[in-house]
Write a protein that binds this DNA or RNA. Structure first.
Length: 275
DNA sequence: ATAAGGCCCTGACCGC
DNA sequence: TGCGGTCAGGGCCTTA
């Protein structure tokens, strides 16, 4: 599942493939993929647009166009965005296809159909609910502590809340809590100042390590798996210490990694190392 | 304001 | 082999 490191990898690797490319015809096979504007308007407005700038906010990909508009893409669970030769035949998971003036096509594929695309003049309303961007100056131990103060919910659930930290998903939340030595069911407001600082550092570290490894690929099949634009996998799964390691020995203490459900999400942790 | 539960989706997997 | 049922889960919406 694409989280911040996976989306960051996408942005970096799509940049040389899309920079300066102009969009021709657009085909939309699953209308709900286009969150805004309506499909007909999207198809009209995307034609002739040129990819110019490339950015990311949380798990949102921001493909800036020379006109000033922005194509925002959220991959959600199983979305893929790939550049392929124009001879490619769209399969049943291809929901949006943009012709490029390079003789290629940009394809949005998504087995679960949760992914969304926006074409907007102003990206701010789409991103308005996002909290601080980790790996930036907007994210700090003090700021994190302030957002957690008074919250009774489990810290695992709060890490998944995009208004607390933008871009953290299930994998990186579990890995960060392990590195910080914090049990996923601890209440957010109950963390000590020292623990908040440790958690802050752990979130930054796992995200940076995830980016360095080009993300985590561990889906059961290629259509569900996160893949880079080239189709290559990331390698951060090789560094997972708890995620999907249920029953395997903790790499620190040897205790079996446990799995519980928190906020309707599977959570993996070491019962011995995480208090 | 916060927390919890439902919803959207379909491939993979399990039991029979 | 095939069928029905269950699970996974990000973000948004509704409910309490």
């Amino acid at each position: 599942m694409p989280e911040l490191p996976e989306v960051e990898t996408y942005v970096r690797e799509l940049t040389p493939l899309l920079a300066g490319r102009r969009v021709g015809a657009a085909q939309v096979f699953w209308p709900r993929t286009i969150a805004a504007p309506d499909v007909a308007t999207f198809q009209t407005q995307i034609i002739g647009q040129e990819f110019a700038t490339f950015g990311r906010r949380g798990k949102y990909m921001l493909l800036g166009l020379a006109s000033g508009a922005t194509l925002i893409v959220h991959l959600r669970m199983t979305g893929h965005l790939q550049v392929e030769p124009a001879s490619v035949t769209p399969d049943k998971h291809t929901h949006v296809m943009l012709d490029l003036d390079s003789g290629e096509r940009l394809l949005f594929r998504d087995a679960r159909k949760f992914g969304r695309i926006w074409l907007v003049d102003d990206s701010a309303p789409v991103l308005a609910r996002l909290g601080p961007e980790p790996l930036s100056d907007d994210f700090s131990p003090g700021g994190l502590g302030a957002l957690l103060a008074g919250r009774q919910a489990a810290i695992k659930a709060l890490l998944l809340d995009q208004t607390i930290v933008a871009g953290v998903g299930n994998i990186y939340a579990d890995e960060a809590l392990f590195r910080a030595g914090i049990h996923p069911l601890r209440s957010g407001g109950g963390l000590t100042e020292v623990e908040v600082v440790r958690l802050y550092a752990a979130v930054c570290a796992v995200l940076a390590d995830g980016i360095a490894a080009a993300g985590s690929s561990l889906g059961v099949s290629s259509i569900q798996n996160y893949q880079r634009p080239s189709g290559a996998p990331g390698s951060f799964q090789e560094q997972h210490r708890v995620f999907q390691r249920t029953g395997q020995p903790c790499l620190v203490c040897g205790a079996p990694i446990a799995r519980i459900v928190v906020a309707q999400r599977s959570s993996h942790f070491c019962p011995h190392c995480q208090k």
